[in-house]
Design a protein around this nucleic acid. Structure first.
Lengths: 136, 136
DNA sequence: TTAAATCCTACTTATTCCGTAGAATTAGTA
DNA sequence: TACTAATTCTACGGAATAAGTAGGATTTAA
């Protein structure tokens, strides 16, 4: 199960994608009330999305958030990595966040690792097939 | 990422599968030392696996644990549900543990839900393709 | 200058994770 | 019958994470 943080991130991105006319930005307040997300929590999430260059923002009274990529370029895989961490089920099967297991008997012959690498590949494929465009 | 509990459960089941001759059982102590799992933690995990009829046990000095199903009948999906809960990424997309979202704007038209149901199907398929037999 | 927005940091509260401890129970064996 | 070695059961505890809250600092359009 994903965290509320990730669910809110998805909902917020979908809302922004649906409600931004050209050159316009969407206010946190709007997103929070329309998409039913606690506002202060949403602020933090949007800041993190910004740090990861998925959205950008304008400050000030006409400010708000807008997407930095096209909706079909923002994949579930990217959002997942950002909110939940590695997609692999164990760190030793992760590509981007590889770490050896502390309790591994013999990594070279570990069949669990190889099986979980296969699972990772499939999961990445299905997470990359879903984008914000899919969800609008 | 899966919990240590689930990882230990997998390792323990593989060890039991590999080390049980006919009608023999495998001691917690053996599993713990050979598979590098904290013993007291392992005890709890095995008890839970027993409660879910994946293993069974004999008490007493010749006691220990043995599988209640064939290795190729124990799927990663079953172990996951037992250790981690629902496979679906959100509860409203879950088959066995369905619950409506508290923050849903309109469940009937929610595209996130439908997308995550698709993901669930694919995840279940890949989790069911791996069994203890695959990992021996 | 002011109102309205984002930005930043810290705090809180509850839950889950990862074990540890110790005693009770069971069963084989001398 | 007593001993021993195994599982079973229940509780406890520290650390980390989740899900927010709070309050102010900063920025910008009007």
């Amino acid at each position: 199960m994903i965290s509320k943080k990730m669910k809110y991130a998805i909902k917020a991105l979908v809302y922004i994608a649906q409600n931004s006319k050209e050159n316009s930005s969407v206010k946190t307040n709007d997103i929070a009330t329309k998409a039913l997300i606690p506002k202060k929590f949403l602020e933090q999430i949007l800041l993190e999305l910004k740090k990861n260059r998925i959205v950008n923002s304008r400050q000030g009274s006409m400010g708000g958030y807008y997407l930095m990529k096209k909706p079909n370029e923002i994949t579930l895989a990217a959002i997942y990595r950002l909110c939940e961490g590695p997609i692999a089920l164990v760190s030793c099967a992760s590509l981007n966040y590889y770490e050896p297991c502390t309790d591994c008997v013999d990594e070279a012959t570990c069949k669990i690792k190889f099986a979980l690498i296969e699972i990772r590949q499939k999961t990445i494929a299905s997470f990359e097939s879903i984008t914000i465009a899919t969800l609008m």
